[in-house]
Design a protein around this nucleic acid. Structure first.
Length: 508
DNA sequence: CGAATGTATCCTAGGATACATTCGGTGCACTAGT
């Protein structure tokens, strides 16, 4: 019966590993925590149930671009009872969508939008069949820092009658999985956890003495490796500078940059050019890549340290979706350690800062919606930190329905400082663990898998510690056919002459 | 931690130098005036 639906709605004959299990659990009204490797059809796990069940499936997605992509994709394949609800749409469009709710199968929206009373009231009059959190690791990675509305999803879910919930992601450490379940209150659930290992990605770390040497190494690699590829850097400015530098030194390469400070239109353009094979290389910050579904990325180079193993795996996991041999390389210098640590320190609040920030709170005062935002701006702390503090204060009972409760100021600051201290300590521990992985003398894959509580496995080629050679990834054979060759055969094929220089093309 | 920017000081006056300060990533939603 499920296969029938799979065939009629999606045109596939059989399920990929994990899919059927997840779908059956959802249909029997069970909660599910799922970790499936990228490219194994995660979205089908909730799209199919949404189509065969009465009621609305709500999908919480972290990025507007992802929502719009998915909706467009579904619509173009004939599924019309699908919509998104976010700030991308006009007020009128949103009104229209809300009036159509009872007839919809799928609604994509953001955690922030689900805080809108207006929307919630309308959702309460609809039968919600499933509550889905896509890219669920964001709950843990972003929820505690600058998107606190991720932590309010538990309440939203409850308000919607506690429908069966699916939290799905490609990469979550055991600790993050625990956090996801806690934040979504996922009890009595099925866990479908597949390995994070990507056997076609070769792992290497190189320590260089000086920045100059690191840059020269990068330049050399970029000129010889098979494309397309990504270079992850620490800052926005660096992504721009590095891109323009590489453009100069490698005029035949089509290079661009990408970061969160760019105009939406530019970001979209770069992403589309990359997808359409009009770019060979993108120098980017961590803003680039989520939801990116390009199958043939051949290398991901880190020009700085990631702040934790999970982020690193997310980023390198964008390589080799086609199963073809791909390279994950981290280039570092001793001074990069300090910069990574500084990144964590940034915006760290001390007890005295909390004293200042909370000083004006008066018992019984009804706070304006933007009170925290204003206060944090006056303090000089940008982005969404205020959301996190406000959330914690609500949790501690200091604020209820926007009204300041009777408070023991000293005890409150203490409790808050303690929570923040714990959070900072966790982040430091995650960075420490990642740094020690980069300094490993034994197999890197083994270290990575152990971090995910997985049993190590041996494979060849594996990583620089197991003996390997980057010449294997040098450009030459253009038409590799991953479906027809094993990993070993591919590598054998890769041995040979370099790819000819190609013509320039349209690039920014 | 280190790179970039800002400020003070030198003293035939604007350009060099030294020291101090700031900043560095990830996204949603929204305003108000056209």
């Amino acid at each position: 019966m499920l296969e029938q639906a799979l065939r009629t709605h999606f045109g596939y004959d059989s399920f990929k590993p994990g899919q059927e299990e997840i779908i059956e659990a959802l249909l029997s009204r069970q909660n599910v925590l799922a970790m499936l490797p990228t490219g194994t059809g995660k979205s089908l796990c909730y799209q199919l149930p949404a189509l065969v069940t009465e009621g609305l499936t709500i999908v919480v997605s972290p990025l507007l671009s992802l929502m719009e992509d998915q909706v467009q994709q579904l619509r173009s394949s004939g599924m019309k009872r699908v919509a998104s609800f976010n700030s991308f749409q006009t007020r009128e469009e949103r009104k229209r969508t809300s009036s159509l709710l009872p007839q919809l199968d799928l609604l994509y929206t953001s955690p922030e939008m689900l805080q809108s009373k207006w929307l919630l009231e309308r959702l309460e009059h609809v039968t919600v069949a499933h509550f889905v959190v896509d890219e669920a690791h964001c709950i843990s990675h972003w929820g505690h820092d600058f998107r606190a509305d991720y932590l309010r999803l538990k309440q939203v879910k409850k308000q919607l009658g506690d429908p069966p919930c699916l939290a799905i992601t490609a990469t979550a450490t055991p600790r993050v999985r625990e956090d996801i379940c806690e934040q979504l209150d996922l009890r009595h659930r099925l866990d479908v956890i597949h390995s994070v290992n990507r056997s076609n990605i070769y792992l290497q770390v190189e320590q260089h003495e000086r920045t100059m040497a690191k840059l020269e190494r990068l330049s050399l690699l970029v000129g010889t490796l098979q494309h397309p590829g990504l270079v992850y850097v620490q800052s926005r400015r660096q992504s721009e500078e590095l891109a323009s530098r590489l453009k100069e030194t490698h005029p035949h390469l089509r290079v661009s940059h990408y970061h969160g400070g760019m105009e939406n239109a530019d970001r979209l353009l770069i992403q589309q050019q990359f997808m359409a094979d009009q770019l060979d290389l993108i120098c980017c910050t961590s803003a680039f890549g989520m939801g990116l579904n390009k199958p043939d990325i051949r290398f991901v180079i880190h020009y700085h340290y990631s702040l934790d193993m999970a982020s690193y795996i997310q980023e390198i996991g964008r390589a080799g979706r086609d199963g073809g041999p791909s390279l994950a390389l981290l280039l570092s210098t001793p001074e990069d350690v300090g910069q990574a640590k500084a990144m964590l320190e940034r915006g760290r609040l001390q007890a005295s800062d909390l004293d200042w920030l909370l000083a004006p709170l008066q018992e019984g005062e009804a706070l304006a919606d933007d009170w925290f935002e204003q206060r944090f701006e006056a303090f000089g702390a940008g982005n969404g930190m205020w959301k996190s503090i406000r959330f914690l204060l609500e949790q501690l009972g200091a604020i209820n329905e926007g009204v300041v409760q009777p408070l023991d100021r000293y005890a409150l600051t203490e409790a808050l400082a303690q929570k923040l201290t714990n959070r900072y300590a966790e982040r430091e521990e995650r960075l420490r663990a990642f740094l020690s992985w980069t300094e490993r003398t034994a197999c890197r894959r083994e270290g990575m898998l152990r971090y995910f509580n997985e049993e190590p496995l041996s494979q060849h080629p594996c990583c620089d510690k197991c003996g390997g050679d980057l010449t294997l990834f040098q450009a030459k054979e253009k038409n590799h056919r991953p479906d027809r060759f094993s990993w070993q055969e591919e590598l054998a094929l890769l041995f040979g002459e370099r790819e000819e220089q190609r013509d320039g093309g349209p690039y920014s």
